[in-house]
Simulated scan of single mutants.
Amino acid sequence: MTDLPPLPDPRHGGGWPRLAPLGTDGILVSFADRLDDKANRAALSFRAAAEDAGLAGLAETATSLASAYLRFDPEVATPARAAAAVRALLDARDWYASPLPQGRQLWRIPCVFGTALAPQLAEAAAAAGLSPEAAIRSIAGTRLRVQTIGFAPGQPYLGELPPEWDIPRQTALTDRIPVGAVCVAIRQLVLFTVSTPTGWRHVGQTAFRTFRPGDAQPFVLRPGDEVEFTPIPAEAYAALRDAGPDGGATCEPLT
């Protein structure tokens, strides 16, 4: 790609959004340099608009927490033509004020908070200045957006939680957390799709599987979807786990 200097947007300040080449055939459109609700909304909205616009040669798109990535087929669109099309679309509106894309889903996912299934709830709650009971109410009472998919296939980063949840990761790793674990740090939750070591505190456990490699749509959650966790007793977990990959979760369209 050709050199792409920042395209300042005075409506947001700080010289954002910014365009930069990524590899030989991609453009990264960044709306901030860190997680920010408006920037995440802008990235999701811009990606959807780019796909809907039918940009010549657009072969692939993705979003991160605050950026959108667009890859172009160089046999269809030259770097200059691709850059010009992205600039024109970016300048078409205030993406920070754009609505979220259509076609999103609201998922309600049963979750065991605390107990031996999620043993770090009390520790995380204390770090947030909350009792375990207040921590459960806070998390369960917050509708969370799938901000991005990353780290492992189909794995969602969910946010943002209220400000008291701006707690750091652990200084040491937990040796291994199970698939379906809900872990917290820096005002986000991660719903783990793999069993792995982590520095995030394990506060909840679900039977929901967000990565289903044998399905036609292996990534169940998509960026922009929303999630609510419904507290359930630990005794209910085994039955939900045995019932199938949804783990008792339900979904409905968002308008």
Rank of each mutant, 00 (worst) to 15 (best):
T2Q: 15
T2G: 14
T2N: 15
P5C: 12
L7T: 14
L7P: 02
L7N: 10
D9I: 02
D9T: 07
G14F: 11
L19R: 02
G23R: 15
G26T: 07
L28W: 09
F31R: 06
D33M: 09
R34T: 14
D36E: 12
K38N: 13
A39H: 11
A39P: 06
N40Q: 06
A42Q: 11
A49E: 11
A49H: 11
A50G: 08
G54Q: 13
G57I: 02
A59L: 12
T63P: 03
A66M: 11
S67H: 11
Y69F: 15
L70E: 09
F72C: 05
E75K: 15
A77T: 10
P79F: 11
R81P: 02
A83P: 05
R87T: 03
A88D: 13
L89A: 08
L89T: 07
R93E: 14
D94F: 09
S98F: 04
P99K: 12
G103I: 04
Q105R: 15
L106H: 15
I109G: 04
V112D: 01
F113A: 05
T115V: 00
A122N: 08
A125Y: 00
A125M: 02
A126Y: 00
S131H: 07
E133M: 09
A135C: 06
R137L: 11
I139D: 01
A140S: 13
T142F: 07
R143I: 14
Q147Y: 12
F151P: 00
E160G: 01
P163L: 14
R169Q: 02
R169H: 03
T171N: 06
D175A: 15
R176Q: 13
G180N: 05
A185C: 06
A185R: 02
L189I: 01
V190N: 00
V190A: 00
L191A: 04
F192C: 02
F192T: 04
T193N: 01
V194H: 09
S195W: 04
P197S: 12
P197A: 13
G199F: 00
R201S: 00
H202Y: 06
V203W: 02
Q205R: 09
T206M: 00
R209F: 05
P213M: 09
P213A: 10
F219S: 13
V220Q: 02
R222P: 04
P223V: 10
D225K: 07
E226Y: 08
V227D: 02
T230R: 15
T230Y: 07
I232A: 01
E235K: 13
E235D: 14
Y237K: 06
Y237H: 15
L240K: 03
R241W: 14
G247W: 06
G247F: 04
A249N: 07
A249W: 03
P253A: 08
P253C: 03
T255L: 13
